[in-house]
Amino acid sequence: MTEQHDSIILNFVVRVLLVPFIFVFGVYVLVHGEASPGGGFQAGAIVAAGLVLARLTTGSEHGERRISTRVLLWLASAGIGIYVLAGIVPLLAGVNFLDYAALPVEWFNAVAGHERTNRAMGIFIVEVGIFIGVFSVLVILYDHLTERFTDD
């Protein structure tokens, strides 16, 4: 399951038609997660499915992957870091752990041009952290299952 398939139809359908749509749908699920079904975990699973699909068609023995396992490991750590930071920053401000109301994100309202409460922004930051962590870990799992035990 790790060799490249030289079918132009398979490559076109998966890499041009399917995978970009899956990525856009995953980001849609992420940013609409507070109001409708969805959220960081589901969006991460969807984006990971898209990345695994791209990896299944391109294979791993020909050339370098666009996003290597090492980068994904950093991304997974960054996802956990975002979550922990969203909890630690209110703690430093003198309120409870993960008390989003104390997050210093008011400047974002001016940038985005519409009003959101600090609490909504805090939930969104945590969901972004979960999203990055989940999709990186799922793709790392796939990478480690399909590698041919070559120590790097």
Binding site: P37, A45, I46, A49, Y142, L145
Partner: peptide, 17 residues
């Protein structure tokens, strides 16, 4: 919400893994 997770993870990722 649970159905979403089940479809994405159960039917999508775990099969490949």
């Amino acid at each position: 919400d649970v159905a979403f997770t089940e479809a994405a993870l159960g039917a999508g990722i775990t099969g490949v893994l």
